[in-house]
Design a protein around this nucleic acid. Structure first.
Lengths: 143, 143
DNA sequence: TTTGGTGCAAAGCGTTTGCACCCGC
DNA sequence: GCGGGTGCAAACGCTTTGCACCAAA
């Protein structure tokens, strides 16, 4: 999924395309394998469009969440972290509980998900399949 | 998993068993199919042991998290929500994005999880497999 | 021109923390 | 009695919000 696809989606929902919004989405696309906090999103967005403000970050997080294209989670320090949900290049993560490293995995139990939602008569929106553990480095460090 | 099993685990980790702690764990066990916020945990714990305080709730949330027996997530209002991880009676959830209803499902991609962590050389701690959608009621309400 | 978007600063509120006291063990 | 656990209240800091101004369409 390229930035133009997301912008098109944004336009369809009736939102305007601003420089700040473009910067934020570009950052999310470039970091689709990483869960970013609001602060990290701001820092990286500022590299693209320096005038970006934290309020704008939060307001766009909400818009993208409502559009169901943003995955949110909570890290070990209770800070909300986000990444884009991309229907193609879809994958999940191995997340190290010690250093926070995130590693993409291709496996996704999508077949099961579709069967379950059909059986329970839910309209499928989103799903999370994340695995937490200790990565090799952290095991060696003995943490 | 009964309350005694969790208390035994708590004792093994070197923690004391207090009335507040027992109340909190009992609430978590009784609500193992629901994701509870800190405030809901407090309210329900107070029904068992009225003197329970919010600080105690948060401190016990941290202890149970560190012991890797607490699952945490974040709801649509950015509030942290929790439930016990029980190795037996293990299951995941269908979560309605509209009304917040949680429905247990038996399916778990545990085989895949074990294979992936082995292949990537991670020590497996925990995993999330949650499906989000709109339940039948909310579909009928047209929300 | 219209209307949603943004920056700024202040407010809100869930969460954390210091300290004195309490209570399992 | 010792050392961890708790209650209280204040502090913290992430997130939200009101308002005036800006900019996309």
């Amino acid at each position: 999924m390229k930035i133009e696809d997301v912008l098109e989606l944004i336009r369809k929902e009736g939102y305007k395309v601003t420089n700040q919004r473009k910067a934020i989405i570009q950052v999310l696309i470039e970091n689709r394998d990483f869960l970013l906090s609001a602060e990290e999103l701001l820092e990286k967005s500022k590299l693209i469009y320096p005038k970006t403000n934290m309020s704008t970050i939060y307001r766009n997080i909400e818009i993208l969440s409502n559009a169901n294209i943003l995955f949110s989670d909570i890290d070990k320090n209770n800070i909300a972290i986000y990444k884009l949900i991309c229907s193609n290049n879809h994958h999940h993560h191995l997340i190290c509980k010690s250093c926070g490293r995130t590693e993409a995995i291709d496996y996704c139990p999508i077949k099961a998900i579709e069967e379950i939602t059909k059986e329970k008569n839910y309209i499928l929106l989103d799903h999370k399949f994340e695995i937490y553990g200790y990565c090799e480095d952290c095991q060696n460090k003995g943490t």
